[in-house]
Amino acid sequence: MSDWERSSTARVIPPARPRKLAKVPFVELADGRLQGVVSSGSDIGRVYVSSVAAGTFAFACSTNNNRPCGGARGSFCNHIIALINESVLQYGAERVVRYLKAEIPAGDADGPALVAAMRSTRPQADATKAAASVFSRFLRHLAYLEHGPVTAPLPEMHFFPPTRAVA
């Protein structure tokens, strides 16, 4: 067993490639879903909570006020497509494909290929239940960005690995 597996801290994995956070500020592979928050293209004050379930590819997209997305009717909307493409940048295509249990040839794994492989599915009713918890985690994530640089520990962040001071 390696040192990080025996420690009480989580290993931080850097993004596969840099990504722009303006369109998709929050992406995660959690709870058996690819899920995240996507900015609206038409209203700067609106965001969408989008998710795609692993294995079934059941999808959901709704505003932060829990109103359904008008574009997610029987097929992936632009918010879900943006979420999938950004997840490939964040985690790498192979990891996202493996997590979602998609069947894509190894050499063809990228965002558009993943979207094409999953696009023909239909949403399931239980896919929308994730929106509240995803948006809550996103808001918590934003709250950490408001903290100024301090050396005192933040009790709710005790699970993050300590960083070394750069001289």
Rank of each mutant, 00 (worst) to 15 (best):
C77W: 02
V52E: 00
A54N: 01
G111C: 10
P123E: 04
T56P: 03
A130N: 02
Y99F: 14
A106W: 10
A117G: 07
A60F: 10
A117W: 02
S50Y: 01
A113H: 04
I80L: 11
R67H: 11
H79G: 05
H79D: 04
V52Q: 01
G92T: 07
F57T: 10
T128S: 14
Y91C: 02
A113N: 07
R98W: 05
L89R: 13
T56F: 09
D126I: 06
T63Q: 10
N66L: 15
A117S: 13
I84V: 14
T128I: 14
S50I: 01
S51N: 15
Q124R: 14
H79S: 05
G55A: 06
N66E: 15
P112I: 05
S87K: 03
V49G: 02
R122K: 14
E86M: 10
S51H: 10
A58S: 11
G107K: 13
Q124F: 11
A58D: 06
A116T: 10
A54R: 00
G111N: 09
S75T: 13
A127H: 03
V49A: 07
D126K: 09
G45H: 15
R67P: 00
I84Y: 06
A116S: 12
D110A: 09
L114P: 03
V96R: 01
V88K: 01
